[in-house]
Lab assay of single mutants.
Amino acid sequence: MRVFPVYAPKLIVKHARIFLTGVIWVKDLGRLEFEKGRFLLPRKSLPKVKQAILELNELIEAQN
Rank of each mutant, 00 (worst) to 15 (best):
F4H: 02
A52R: 10
G30M: 03
A8I: 13
G22N: 02
G30C: 03
I24K: 03
V13M: 07
V49A: 05
V49K: 12
L11V: 07
R38I: 08
V13W: 02
T21F: 08
F34I: 06
A8Y: 08
E33Y: 15
M1Y: 00
P9K: 03
V13N: 02
Q63C: 13
M1H: 15
P47A: 14
P9R: 03
E35I: 12
Q51M: 13
A16M: 04
V26Y: 01
K14T: 09
N64D: 13
K44T: 06
V49W: 02
E61K: 06
L41K: 13
A8E: 09
K36P: 03
L46T: 10
R2L: 15
A62Q: 14
F39E: 15
N57C: 04
F4N: 00
L40F: 05
R2V: 15
N64P: 09
E33R: 15
E35P: 02
K27D: 15
E61I: 11
K14F: 09
F39A: 02
N57T: 03
H15C: 06
M1T: 15
F19M: 12
V3E: 15
L29K: 03
Y7H: 01
R2H: 15
L56F: 02
L46N: 10
G22C: 05
P9V: 03
K48E: 06
V49C: 06
I53C: 09
E61Q: 10
R17D: 07
E33S: 14
L41V: 08
T21N: 09
T21S: 13
G30A: 04
A16R: 00
R17V: 11
L54C: 09
I24Q: 00
R43I: 07
N64C: 14
H15G: 01
K36F: 08
E58F: 08
F34W: 04
L54V: 08
G37V: 06
L40D: 04
A8R: 08
L32C: 02
V3L: 01
I12F: 00
F4I: 03
I24N: 00
P42Q: 05
E55T: 05
G30L: 02
L54P: 00
I60C: 06
F4C: 06
K14H: 13
A52H: 06
L40E: 04
L29C: 04
A62R: 09
G22S: 03
I12T: 02
F34D: 00
F19D: 10
L32Y: 02
P5K: 14
Q51I: 08
E58C: 11
G37A: 08
Y7L: 03
Q51R: 12
F19I: 14
Y7C: 03
D28N: 14
L41Y: 11
R2D: 15
V49T: 06
V49D: 00
